[in-house]
Design a protein around this nucleic acid. Structure first.
Length: 468
RNA sequence: CGGGACGUGGCGCAGUCUGGUAGCGCACUCGCUUUGGGAGCGAGGGGUCGCCAGUUCGAAUCUGGCCGUCCCGACCA
């Protein structure tokens, strides 16, 4: 395996993270502080995420649209909590076309406001509801401490915005996105065993009445918020006058939701599955599932390799040929750092035996596979690798989560993992106390793993941890 | 934005204390030999030492300011 390529995780996890991003050619820092250049391999992973997410969003009934990057500053100020939450991190355009603008224009930090303005135009009748929109876009938040993928000044995401006739309909839709789109995607594609819960009032989105979250545990035991789905109540409907006429000709305010996942998920994928040899990309999201390597050219090797790629491709496997003429060892290590799940190595020796060598990044090890059985072997390996990654991440989360009954114990446990503590024991005072040790309440859950409808029930449990 | 560390060819570093005009490893280019786990030999190219001032005969080195990166916090997807 690769040696001395990356800083070991145990030595310096943040350094390891930076090393992987550089060596796997995922991204670079942009020229402006906090910005990010996403390189082709990193982009390919994001594209796979987009494709899988987009299909689920559409299956949930939302339609894609696009709203402008620039928003009148006055829009932001209409919802009090929203403006208060976002003001510190806004990028504002004051000059354009060679002169000072009459009204400053903000670069969207999120689009509730512009979309709210248009929702108000489009929802006239109960027949127009629910209005289910999604957009893939870039947003800008001038964060104070940027980190590639996890928190960049500009990031890419999808943001869904919906308007409903009733509270119940809005609530159920936010829940549906949380479960059927986000949790399903993260578990089935990213192989990350996320915990679903609701945010405390302190951690809630600015302008929301309830925020649902998905939290993943990273390789160092810290938590990463991987997506959120918000019930916005009638806050934005009031601010933007989003209303409709009921069947009995009554004017009613809508109930709205918004929900988002971002390029941060790429960071989550890196930290949830990566090891000291580099990235380990879950097979279902991997842009390259199988790298077919010409290990040593010889009689018919290149032709055989091309046939293998074609056969795998026909079987629906994302396979690529590696015919570079650099040394075999380097190419193998490159593939390992990039986390390509399976390598098929072909050389004269293999062909003489009528076989190829299959190397596994996730399960480890190499084995000879008869040519005729390769597709079946690869398919089985990819399925097994997904399960292995998921189970490994789940085992880590379970072994590093400690059930506590006191704030002191929870603070101690959260130093290198997660802790759970009854919310009635913790409360907002305890939450503030933990914050002094950089520990936050990631979410509230119920004993059976379901999401509480309220903070107030006796059996509500707080999951607390250090977080990215 | 507060605390700390660091900015020297693409990457990683030495040189800074004690001022004298820049070096190493990797990478890169060309040639030949190689290719089953980071190939070898030979020949090359590339840096106004983060930026701006100042001190000095002379600054990578000393002084001041600014910018950037990373870590730890506060803020956040």
């Amino acid at each position: 395996m690769a040696k001395n390529v990356l800083t070991p995780q145990a030595e310096d996890f943040p350094r390891w993270y930076q090393d992987v991003i550089a060596k796997a050619e995922l991204a670079d820092n942009g020229p402006v502080r906090g910005t990010m250049v996403i390189r082709p391999y990193g982009w390919a992973i994001w594209e796979r995420m987009q494709a899988e997410m987009d299909a689920r969003i559409k299956a949930a009934g939302a339609k894609n649209a696009y709203f402008p990057l620039f928003i009148p500053e006055s829009y932001l100020t209409r919802e009090a909590e929203h403006v208060e939450g976002f003001s510190p991190e806004l990028a504002v355009v004051t000059h354009a076309g060679g002169k000072k603008l009459e009204e400053p224009v903000i670069v969207r930090p999120t689009s509730e406001t512009v979309i709210g303005e248009y929702m108000a135009k489009w929802t006239q009748s109960y027949r127009d509801l629910p209005l289910l929109l999604n957009q893939w876009a870039n947003v800008v938040r001038w964060e104070l401490r940027p980190r590639l993928f996890l928190r960049t000044s500009e990031f890419l995401w999808q943001e869904g915005h919906t308007a409903h006739a009733t509270y119940e309909d809005a609530r159920l839709y936010a829940k549906r996105i949380h479960e059927e789109v986000y949790a399903d995607f993260m578990r089935r594609e990213l192989a990350i065993p996320v915990v679903l819960g609701r945010k405390t009032a302190k951690e809630r989105f600015a302008g929301a009445t309830n925020t649902l979250t998905l939290e993943g545990m990273m390789g160092d035991g810290k938590a990463l918020q991987m997506g959120t789905s918000h019930e916005l109540g009638q806050n934005f409907a009031t601010a933007f006058d989003i209303n409709y006429l009921t069947e009995d000709n009554q004017r009613e305010l809508c109930w709205t939701t918004s929900w988002g996942t971002s390029t941060r998920m790429v960071g989550g994928l890196i930290m949830a599955h990566g090891d000291d040899d580099g990235l380990r990309v879950p097979p279902r999201i991997a842009p390259i599932q199988v790298l077919v390597m010409i290990v040593k050219d010889g009689d018919g090797v290149a032709d055989a390799a091309r046939r293998v790629v074609a056969e795998l491709t026909d079987a629906g496997v994302r396979a690529e040929l590696d015919a570079r003429d650099s040394a075999f060892g380097r190419r193998a290590i490159d593939a390992e750092i990039k986390g390509i799940p399976v390598r098929v190595e072909i050389g004269p020796r293999d062909l003489e035996a009528g076989a190829v060598t299959m190397a596994r990044r996730i399960a480890g090890g190499k084995s000879a596979v008869p040519l005729g059985e390769l597709t079946a072997a690869v398919t089985a390996a990819l399925t097994a690798d997904h399960d292995a990654l998921y189970n490994e991440a789940l085992a880590r989360r379970e072994s590093r989560t400690v059930a506590c009954t006191t704030i002191e114990d929870a603070a101690q446990a959260a130093k290198d993992g997660w802790a759970t503590i009854p919310w009635r024991e913790l409360g907002t005072d305890g939450e503030a106390k933990l914050a002094e040790s950089a520990i936050s309440v990631r979410c509230l859950v119920l004993p059976d793993g379901s999401v509480p409808r309220t903070e107030d029930d006796d059996d509500v449990i707080a999951v607390v941890a250090r977080a990215y």
